[in-house]
């Protein structure tokens, strides 16, 4: 959780205050995770067993990875409700390549490019066709979901070669998905914060007209952001598809909502212009920690979604109250 201390903050007056106001939501979630671990491990110490920690962090890594791309899309002021269906389609493509006898790396790499290709079309329809992103992605959701089932007939993919199962492997004793999650999160965070391209995403989401006046090619940028988002969906697919020995040819239900929720709870404003991918990754970890915690404190897992729903409302409320206070402070 010390990850977020990394960016160099100007050491002016009240460095802590500045840090909290710049990364308020991330701090809130990090505290929530710590609190959750403290309370649940006090009730049931087995919660802290290495095996369980591993499950919590690596099991939801694919959601964290997909939420990075989603955060970028939302920061530019758009939304994508088709990403769950896209991941379902890409997983089937990946699995089909893996069992066909082709080299395993091909099965890992192709989904990334297919994801970029599909989302290039989505981005072009939004940017040049001037259709609202929710409409395009709603349509795309139907096309991908329906297409997947009608092509595969709902058949599962079995007999995946063991070397394909990347998510089950470890590097230096740490599960591969965790490496993916950490490296991609930090990389994307730095890229969005310190490059002109990354800053332009915030500019477009904050005020598209001002961004245009400043010379940012908005249409092209939107297509590019959706392609990057597609690449992250492809990366998430690798982690998702290689978890188990089978791939179900259906779209995981509500996956898109889980991914959007992770981004939003992580502090990405749905109105665009603000938020970081560190928050979305922390939120993804928080989700799986809650899911695991319910089991350890003997609450029926059927309540999981109710808890997450309440959590969305509470975190967003806390964020809004904090922003209101800051705005009043600035007004004085």
């Amino acid at each position: 959780m010390s990850v977020e201390a990394a960016p160099s903050l100007r050491p002016q007056r009240g460095a802590l205050t500045r840090f909290v106001s710049a990364y308020g939501q991330e701090v809130v979630i990090a505290c929530a995770i710590v609190l959750l671990f403290a309370v649940v491990s006090a009730i049931n110490p087995r919660f802290l067993a290495p095996n369980n920690l591993n499950t919590i962090v690596s099991g939801n890594a694919y959601i964290a990875v997909a939420a990075i791309g989603m955060a970028m899309v939302i920061i530019t002021g758009h939304i994508d409700v088709s990403v769950g269906a896209l991941i379902g389609v890409l997983a089937t493509i990946s699995g089909t390549i893996a069992v066909s006898g082709a080299p395993v790396w091909l099965a890992w790499v192709v989904p990334i490019f297919v994801g970029m290709g599909v989302n290039a079309i989505v981005g072009a329809l939004i940017a040049y066709g001037r259709i609202p992103s929710i409409v395009v992605t709603l349509g795309m959701l139907s096309i991908l979901r329906g297409g997947l089932v009608s092509v595969t007939g709902g058949a599962w993919i079995n007999n995946l070669p063991p070397e394909f199962l990347l998510a089950q492997q470890r590097l230096l004793g740490v599960p591969v998905p965790v490496w993916f999650m950490i490296i991609l999160t930090i990389g994307a965070f730095l890229w969005m914060r310190y490059t002109a391209f990354g800053r332009s995403l915030y500019a477009i989401g904050g005020n598209a007209e001002a961004a245009r006046a400043a010379g940012i090619p908005i249409e092209r940028r939107i297509v590019q952001v959706f392609m990057i988002h597609g690449a992250f969906a492809g990366l998430a697919t690798i982690l998702f598809a290689t978890q188990l020995k089978i791939i179900q040819s259906t779209v995981p239900p509500n996956l898109e909502l889980t991914i959007i929720t992770a981004a939003v709870i992580g502090g990405v404003s749905i109105l665009g212009g603000t938020g970081t991918v560190i928050g979305s990754t922390l939120a993804a970890i928080l989700f799986s920690a809650i899911g695991s915690a319910l089991i350890f404190i003997n609450v029926s897992a059927y309540w999981l979604r109710a808890v997450i729903g309440a959590l969305i409302l509470v975190t967003v409320l806390a964020d809004m109250l904090r922003r209101n206070r800051e705005m009043q402070g600035a007004g004085r």
Binding site: Y302, G309, A310, L313
Partner: peptide
């Protein structure tokens, strides 16, 4: 409504 989507469905399941 994204929040209440999860909340209400969760209540139904619970």
């Amino acid at each position: 409504t994204l929040g209440t989507l999860a909340l209400y469905r969760g209540m139904a399941e619970g």
